[in-house]
Design a protein around this nucleic acid. Sequence first.
DNA 1: ATGGCAGGAAGCTCCTGA
Length: 254
Amino acid sequence: MKVATWNVNSLNVRLGHVLDWLKTRQPDILCLQETKLEDARFPRADIESLGYQVIFSGQKTYNGVAIISRSPLADVLHDIPGFADVQKRCISATVAGVRIVCIYVPNGQSVESEKYQYKLAWLKALTVHLQNEIRQHGELALLGDFNVAPEDRDVHDPAAWEGQVLCSAPEREAFRALQTLGLKDSFRQFEQPEKSFSWWDYRMNGFRRNLGLRIDHILLSDTLAQRCRGCTIDVAPRKLERPSDHAPVVAEIA
DNA sequence: ATGGCAGGAAGCTCCTGA
């Protein structure tokens, strides 16, 4: 089973890239973030025409998540139960017995910002919720844009980013709290090239100079992690015309 | 030097992202 996550930074703009990617890479599951589309405008038919099913939770201008799957999506859940939030950042479903949780973690803007406090509260609520989900489902995959670079090696210039949003100690602690639930960072189960990133700033030729961060992740519960045979970042779509600033992350599970 | 891209909604400029 091939599972993937991709922050597309507007599905309206990136629909062509997504459809091409589905055709060539043939994932079983693709989680999307930052669709920036109200549900009424979601391009369901385009995705279904490729033999996929899709569920989505979106809003105008900001946020928006979706799960695309070859197999039926059951027990669909929108948002994080018990966490009052108008922002569409989480959608879950069960596929072939595996609980799939697609997240778009708040950016946080800066560590002094109220948005940063919202981010930490959001991550805390997610962690509490996932504890229950893991208890109920056993096999769970958490995929998405975490907006956290877990370690210094996930940052092109750790000194410049030290203590900044996406890299601060509380954010990294929140990431480790998810791992403490028994979720493994599938990317780090394998040997990887140095300076592997999943996001590069549009500005200053960030991609060409590989000035990036690894903030998009696939976390797997124990038995899935044991069956994981590889995890890679597909930089090819980042080289296309009008790319998303994020690249897809892909995990292969036996 | 806080900028530098990009997307979206609004409207000829702003907010947000990371």
